[in-house]
Amino acid sequence: MKHSFIRDTLVVAKNTFKESVRDKVFYALFAFAFITITFTLFLGSISLSEDVHVIRSLGMAGIYLFSILITVFLGTALMYKEIERRTLYFILSKPVTHAQVVVGKFLGLFASVALSTLGMTAVYLATVLYAGGGFDRLALLAVFFEILELGLLIALSIFFSTFAKPLAGAVYAILVIYIGHSLGMLAAVSEKSGVLAHRFIQVLYYLLPNLEKFNIRDLVLYNQAPSLSATLAVVLYAAVYATILLCGGTLLLKRREF
């Protein structure tokens, strides 16, 4: 049987998808997300007639936070589990390359995280509709940006899982998420600092993932959308960054001794 790069990668992706959607953490977090998003109906009712605003802002925040949790919990354990269980030996004994394993894992997890995010979005849209806010089509754009960010974070989590234990990987990922949303603020602060500190932060600003690029939730809240060129730039940024991380992850995996 002939092997092709894409077909073999998709086999790994399919198995990773099945494995991740069977994970109990996945369902537990999804259930919490469901409760949280529907709970915004109550919060909206005590907001002095700002129901739809509160439901939309907190609902989109809920989707984001739970998607991040699912990504970090599943992503940081993904490669490590294969290494610990020695199943990676088995996979690599087949005509499958390290790159195919890493890319396949990425695609599989990306599909399951995107699926759960879309599931939460469906709950969110139904909640907004029920509250009288109509069909929040712009929220779909915010979710699209969010899925791009999740793709980058999945690549980051896989990168960490090639050398760190799940807990350490989760801590690293959360730190990067936190810093990634504060880079703009750090850059603004650095302008008031000395030249050396300013240059150092500038280097960090361009090297670390700038996750605020993916944050259009506050824009969407006021029925505004980014331009097409800005959207394309963000798609390109996510694709390039994820590719770099997956290449790095593949290299690190190759250098590990089994």
Binding site: S47, M60, A61, H181, L211, R217
Partner: peptide, 8 residues
Amino acid sequence: GLHGAAAS
């Protein structure tokens, strides 16, 4: 970056 949610 969830400023809108924090404000709510």
